[in-house]
Design a protein around this nucleic acid. Structure first.
Lengths: 130, 130
DNA sequence: CGCAAGCCTTCCTGTGGCAGGAAGGTTGTG
DNA sequence: CACAACCTTCCTGCCACAGGAAGGCTTGCG
């Protein structure tokens, strides 16, 4: 398979696949003409990566997860550890975003949104927050 | 005031303040020795920026908000518009993160986390998601 | 007066995860 | 044989800074 076909099948842009080769996540063969030649196992890896990325794992997490996936003697505890830490980071992010959301939605609700200059949003921003 | 003092008072790192000058968000004077000289109005701007950044506004949003803040004939509708769009982006992000969270927490809960290789998390990643 | 500590300066590189695009080679079709 | 549709490498840019090198200024102490 050429890169276009694996791009279609994996759902990843060709650019991304080249990048993943650059950083050593996949290592396709090369044809005589220099084109990348992907095996089924490469496509499999790429769909694995695509799925892990949609779940928000970092590239380094993906690298770790791939290594665990390919290690038949892995301990599921190691996988769970990576996923748990990621889950924790996600929770932190959600908490932080919800805090922003709460403040912002209050301010937006209070703002008249007309053509007068008085604005609670700007008042909040300009007020000295410690 | 030198940069160290405004850094302390605004809560922003000196690096960040220099960067904000680079991109034209603040324009402090210079002393004879080349040091940046910040007025009270500069400090005021920087605390405004710090607050806007903690609410998650992008630098470009901050630029717009600052311009509106300094425009006495602004319409609060313009401010509200910027804030509403930002709020919408935050909501989208939260939704997306919660979707990740739901999937991940399911998987983590199902994973035994022992020293056997069988792992629902890896099974999910490796299974062909369209 | 010399010297060290603690400020300040500019400039360069790196981060994460690619996207965009230039310049050129290859392959398939009418 | 022209042309489109692939493919290649290489370079730059994104965002919002952080880290650090190399050097100038200032202040206080012995």
């Amino acid at each position: 398979m050429n890169i276009g076909e694996v791009a279609d099948k994996s759902g990843l842009p060709a650019k991304t696949i080249r990048y993943y080769e650059d950083i050593g996540l996949v290592t396709p063969n090369r044809s005589d003409n220099g084109y990348r030649q992907f095996r089924d196992s490469d496509l499999h890896k790429l769909t694995f990566l695509a799925r892990a990325r949609t779940l928000g794992f970092s590239i380094e997490d993906c690298r770790t997860l791939m290594a665990l996936y390919e290690d038949d003697s892995r301990a599921s505890a190691d996988v769970k550890s990576v996923a748990s830490q990621h889950l924790e980071r996600i929770d932190q992010k959600i908490t932080q975003l919800q805090s922003m959301r709460d403040t912002l939605s209050h301010l937006v609700a209070e703002c008249a949104g007309d053509n007068r200059p008085d604005c609670p949003i700007l008042n909040d921003l300009a007020c000295h927050h410690e």
